[in-house]
Design a protein around this nucleic acid. Sequence first.
DNA 1: CGTATTTCGTTACCATGCTAACGAATCGTA
DNA 2: TACGATTCGTTAGCATGGTAACGAAATACG
Lengths: 155, 155
Amino acid sequence: MFFLKDLPTREMIEGLAGRFAGADADAMLDELRLLRRASLRLRLVENYLTAQGLSQTQFLVLTVILREPDRDSLTSVEIAERLDVSRPVLSKTLATMERKGLIARQPHGQDKRCVLIAPTEAGTQTYLALLPGYCDALLAPLPDDGASKDPTATG
Amino acid sequence: MFFLKDLPTREMIEGLAGRFAGADADAMLDELRLLRRASLRLRLVENYLTAQGLSQTQFLVLTVILREPDRDSLTSVEIAERLDVSRPVLSKTLATMERKGLIARQPHGQDKRCVLIAPTEAGTQTYLALLPGYCDALLAPLPDDGASKDPTATG
DNA sequence: CGTATTTCGTTACCATGCTAACGAATCGTA
DNA sequence: TACGATTCGTTAGCATGGTAACGAAATACG
């Protein structure tokens, strides 16, 4: 998360440009705006999911399994490959999801080290029930906190 | 952080549109791309700062105090107002920063509940030393993991 | 002035991210 | 077959988010 509410002014960045070479104030501002907007969006989505009892990662675990066209289960490693999280985190997430009854583990025939992870019926239904709200959160207008500090209002 | 590496295809989203009203596949894809790009950028910046011994929040605390034009210290609440983090988190962050010698606490004359937070000389120097690398991380090209899964390359 | 309310900073506790490291299973190779 | 290297999943330990709740100080108000 990028927590800075008010981005630096262009003047500030240009002032910094004097200190070192290669500072491109406009490009940096664009990136900062991107970070801030995404953080607000992320918080919106996360709040929605949390209120529904799922973490982002739990939701995405269901996503990557359910969207697999020819499979109805994935191994832990396959999920980790699709989900930029470390395997220990995934391990804990899957333990939580199993405890909640969202997924079930099945033994992997060939490789006894692996476990196949499949959503339960409840897990699938939960996912489908949450999708509309997830999409809403994705498209909902943002607080736009930068613009709320309108200079004409404060002055 | 948004951990999904491969965004859903447009077809997937449009398939979902059949399930509920109001799904705008293109707008949703735009938002997902935004989230993913920002997460990669955030990780880049965070990795840089972590390697230098600072967390994002610590860096931003220095940012908001040092960029204050007429002040050389802020209260905890003022920092919290500028930095979308909860006060307990800020409290812990400030304790860590004090332990590291990045900031110093001064008593607030009028209000004995408040404490004024000022960067130490070392804190200021650390901040200035990290700024160029921070800007570099902000502008560095991203892994672009979505495009790396080029169908023409895999097929 | 005296008391209720609010505000500040902190503590306690929990969830979730990370790396390091471990046992168990598999693979590679002599 | 036997043994070293690798891979899978987990555990341990740490950092950093969050909310709830607390004491101390300031404020509001009768």
